[in-house]
Design a protein around this nucleic acid. Structure first.
Lengths: 249, 249
DNA sequence: ACTCACTATTGGTTCGATCCAATTTTCTCC
DNA sequence: GGAGAAAATTGGATCGAACCAATAGTGAGT
């Protein structure tokens, strides 16, 4: 649906994709083939080579630098970074997360109802305690094995009719397609815990087994909270990998 | 040597600090005083108000947007974000981390010696297994109570004479000041575990208590690994809070 | 050979100017 | 009044041009 648009104009217009994005992805691919510490062409050279201004080149390179693909040294040049991992932590749904790990995601819905928010949930979602919220408790599976026990709350007003939908798949996709809610930001708190009783049984773990508890408040483009999730992950099959950087200041 | 340069010119030059950084911090302060959803002045207005070009304004605003302080909507304007937390996870030393939490950091050095890297450490630090590395095991304290058990490895060649220094304080500061090594990037893997035996005793925990194990490879400006740390944090007194965002693509 | 000043290179900063795309506001016509 | 079109507003994309600051390379002088 948008492959054809590209080939036709090709040369300079490139259709709907901004030049800097196009350049960024093109360079990202090229960089992936080079060995670490290799110098990239000069910004001025890249500008000429790709028929864009230096400002556009810099915009593309900045993105690559932020993603950890290259590093720049003033006076010296731009070089291929030699980080091996460098997967910045990004907001993903359980389904996406499992896909990335090569596992088949699944779900068993344990609870799906509507209740008053209550003080804790109300505070996180910036509602009144008596406002209704949709509650959803799911056992998330990876290759059919229990991986994570997840409790999600939504403001009812934001997701009308959600309880009538298929809740076994990715909620993120459902939210975006059906309710025009796009999660772009989330505040997370990660803590280590041990699981017992019912939780342990559901996760097929012995009581006292370690687990990661992730508390998340998902927000839309404007920073408004639209989702509150508490997830308990089996420690033996799950970890969190990410790249962090030192403050620029 | 460069304080004086600043005050003299004042008005527009502002000395060594780039305009966009100066504007960014100025706006960050102003924004902190405003209530969420409040619209900022137009980019064009800001440019005129502060006597800079729109490009400079955009550079400042981009930084603020990335840090989660504001959000921008094409065609509408720039607004104060209403995230409450929005502390992006940044690379900090234990000392800095405890300072931020209002706790007094401390250290008890358990091991400080030089050993062959071995296969695991060698791989993380990109060395040969027989190359020497400095090993440092410390019990980190917060307000004099055990908080974390930490094992650090450095390539010996990168930190000559480190073992002779005072190792009870912040290694980050020591590295930067004494060895010109600046950590700017780190790959981390976080996992939940339970502690037993000697580790439990050192952390003053009952065997089987939950803990966060953080494995980190610290890197310099060019992405070269310069430090490998494994830390085990008491779960009852420690958690990790951060903000993540959805991929731009 | 070695050092040190000079020079060229390269990324960083900043300006000014257009044009585009999304949103909001205004106005017009039922 | 209300719906819908038109205009104004606002951030996004790009270009071109200078100049600055850090680094790397060159070369003269000892």
């Amino acid at each position: 649906m948008d492959d054809e648009r590209r080939g036709v104009v090709a040369e300079e217009k490139a259709g709907a994709v901004p030049k800097h994005e196009w350049l960024r992805e093109r360079l990202r691919a090229e960089v992936a083939e080079l060995s670490p510490r290799t110098a990239l062409p000069t910004e001025r050279e890249l500008a000429v080579q790709h028929g864009v201004s230096r400002a556009t080149v810099r915009q593309a390179l900045r993105a690559l630098e932020e993603s950890g693909a290259v590093y720049r040294v003033q006076g010296a040049g731009t070089f291929v970074a030699d980080t091996t991992i460098s997967k910045s932590l990004s907001l993903t749904s359980f389904s996406e997360d499992m896909d990335a790990r090569g596992l088949r995601p699944g779900s068993r819905v344990l609870v799906a109802d509507e209740v008053p928010a209550g003080s804790a949930v109300a505070e996180d979602l910036q509602l009144s305690p008596d406002e209704p919220v949709v509650r959803l408790v799911r056992l998330r599976l990876a290759d059919n094995a229990p991986m994570c026990l997840e409790t999600v709350y939504f403001p009812s007003g934001r997701v009308p009719g959600l309880l009538g939908a298929d809740l076994t798949g990715s909620l993120y996709a459902l939210l975006e397609e059906e309710h025009g809610v796009r999660l772009v930001l989330a505040d997370q708190v990660v803590k280590a815990v041990t699981v017992d009783g019912a939780d342990a049984a559901l996760l097929a773990l012995a009581p006292g087994s370690p687990a990661l508890r992730i508390h998340r408040i998902g927000r839309d483009e404007r920073g408004r909270p639209v989702e509150r999730t508490t997830s308990v992950y089996r420690a033996d099959h799950y970890d969190i990998a990410f790249t962090i950087r030192r403050e620029t200041s």
